[in-house]
């Protein structure tokens, strides 16, 4: 199972090595000064550079219509004064055993300039698919999570609206 994680990074770095030039050229507009700057090996640039939620979902999850499951819990404040640091907590119900665990969790903000905010790849050693972090939100918007199990099943959280008083994309 741990192998799985390693393979993902290795696979991505191999793909990026060949795709880097084409990708960098294609994305020249997005990060003008940094078209060739050092993206970390294995970092999924395509998914992170997608500018529309559906594209970001296709590039990461591979699907846009994922059924909502009560197993995926997403906690975020209903009102955030500062869109620059919105605390989110993600918890996915799973036995987290070698046979049945959450492999990946994707966190999206529907209308951020690039909707995919973070991607987490767990191992059974995690014990629980649990994350807490702070994200930037450009405006009042929905936050949502999609989790993928080791059996390939996809589960979504209900979208959670956060009202943002001051947008957080100035950073």
């Amino acid at each position: 199972m741990t192998k799985n994680t390693m393979q993902r990074r290795q696979f991505l770095s191999a793909t990026l090595a060949t795709g880097a030039v084409a990708t960098a050229a294609g994305l020249g507009l997005l990060r003008p000064q940094l078209a060739f700057a050092g993206d970390v090996s294995g970092w999924p640039a395509k998914a992170f550079d997608a500018k529309v939620l559906n594209d970001a979902m296709m590039a990461s999850v591979g699907k846009t219509d994922v059924p909502v499951s009560p197993k995926v819990k997403l906690t975020a404040p209903s009102i955030a004064e500062n869109g620059g640091a919105v605390p989110v907590t993600i918890e996915v119900d799973s036995p987290m055993t070698a046979d049945d665990y959450i492999t990946t969790v994707y966190l999206f903000v529907d209308h951020n300039p690039t909707p995919l905010a973070s991607q987490f790849s767990f191992t059974p050693a995690s014990g629980q698919a649990y994350i807490q972090e702070r994200i930037k939100m450009a405006k009042t918007d929905n936050v949502r999570v999609i989790a993928k199990t080791s059996k390939g099943e996809l589960l979504a959280s209900a979208p959670r609206e956060v009202k943002v008083t001051i947008g957080g994309c100035g950073g």
Binding site: T2, T5, M6, R8, R9, G42, W43, P44, F48, G84, A85, V86, M96, V109, N112, T114, L116, A117, S118, Q119, F120, S121, F122, T123, A125, S126, G127, Q128, Y130, I131, Q132, E133, R134, I135, K136, M137, G168, G171
Partner: peptide, 23 residues
């Protein structure tokens, strides 16, 4: 041994805080 791999975008707040678990 691998425990957790995270990929972040620019949407993660400055001075990033992160909490996770391990058995």
């Amino acid at each position: 041994k691998p425990l957790l791999d995270i990929d972040w975008s620019t949407a993660v707040s400055a001075n990033p805080f992160l909490a996770f678990k391990m058995r």
